[in-house]
Simulated assay, not measured.
Amino acid sequence: MTAAPAALAAGAVHTREAGDPDAPLLLCLHGIGSSSAAFTPQLDRLADQVHVVAWDAPGYANSPDPDHAPGLDGYADTAAALIREHGGPAHVLGVSWGGVIALRLAARHPELVASLIVADSSRGSGTHPDRAKAMLGRAEQLAAEGPQAFAAARGPRLVSAAAPPALVERVVTTMAASVRSPGYGYAAEAMAGADLTDELPAITAPALVLCGEQDTVTGTDESQAIAGALATSVYVTLSGAGHLANQERPEAFNAWVRAHLHVVARVPA
């Protein structure tokens, strides 16, 4: 498949990195309300096994705004350019919106994706008109309220009811510092138009699909639908976690990622 031009040159995308650059590459793609800061537990605790690279998506946090709406393919192609810049291929970890990008990346650039870890994600909001409308409405809410108020209202919904206050505060602070217009609006537009249902069976990269048991944003049914449609997958429910399972249950989450990498890449666990 001929790739469309990347939304941004890979070098323009801000990243946080940890680990040996010669180790297998783990590229981390954050959710629609976050940034590379969301992967602090993975940067801190997986760097002994892999080279962890977490991006700020185009238009988020420290990455510049694209000059046009990239569309889902634009985000996927920018991630592909980042993998090439780091010598690829990569194991790609995507949370929520990042998981949708990771799946499209695996479909468009299969030679660059050694495996997938898809966490608390979906097939896109375009699977139902109400979901698409709600996604676009969130972009309108951000534009009207500003990042601080938007994050204060939305952030607590992303973790379980039992999440410690410090985690809730960290999620809200990260969101407020990461989202802005037009970047969030571009991402919401891409999500509202995405429905990966038909292309999932053609994805050949081995996948680990995880979901927090108490995820009320995308939910376990949606993660199970992804896992069931992929050619090769393992599905895991993480108890005691909401939508941000990688932050709320980092030890369990990282243990599953380690096990996955050990199986698919023979990386020492």
Rank of each mutant, 00 (worst) to 15 (best):
D130F: 04
P70D: 09
A54M: 05
H68F: 09
D73E: 14
G126Q: 10
F150Q: 03
E111H: 11
V52A: 06
L136K: 12
W55A: 04
G71W: 01
A149Y: 00
E111L: 04
P147K: 10
E111M: 06
V100E: 06
A114Y: 01
A80M: 11
Y75I: 07
H109K: 14
G74D: 02
V52M: 04
E140K: 14
E145R: 13
D65G: 07
M135N: 11
L105I: 11
S115K: 06
L142I: 01
D77V: 13
Q148A: 15
Y60I: 05
T78W: 01
G99P: 04
A106H: 06
G74T: 02
G88T: 09
H68A: 15
H68E: 12
A107C: 07
L82C: 08
V92I: 06
A76K: 05
H86N: 08
V118G: 10
D67V: 13
G146R: 02
H91R: 09
A144N: 10
G137P: 02
Q141G: 14
A143D: 09
A79H: 05
S125T: 10
G74S: 08
A107Q: 11
P89R: 03
A114R: 15
V95S: 15
A80L: 11
A69V: 11
A79T: 11
R131G: 07
L82H: 04
I117L: 10
G126R: 13
R104N: 13
V95K: 08
L116V: 05
W97Q: 13
K133E: 13
A80Y: 10
A134S: 13
D65P: 11
H109Y: 07
G74P: 05
A149E: 08
R138L: 13
A134T: 09
Q141M: 14
V53F: 03
E145S: 14
V52H: 01
H128D: 15
T127N: 12
F150G: 03
G71P: 15
G87W: 00
M135Y: 00
H128N: 13
T127C: 13
A106V: 04
A139C: 07
D130E: 12
G88A: 10
L136Q: 07
R138E: 01
E111G: 14
P58F: 05
P70L: 12
K133T: 14
P58W: 00
G94Y: 03
P89N: 01
R84N: 04
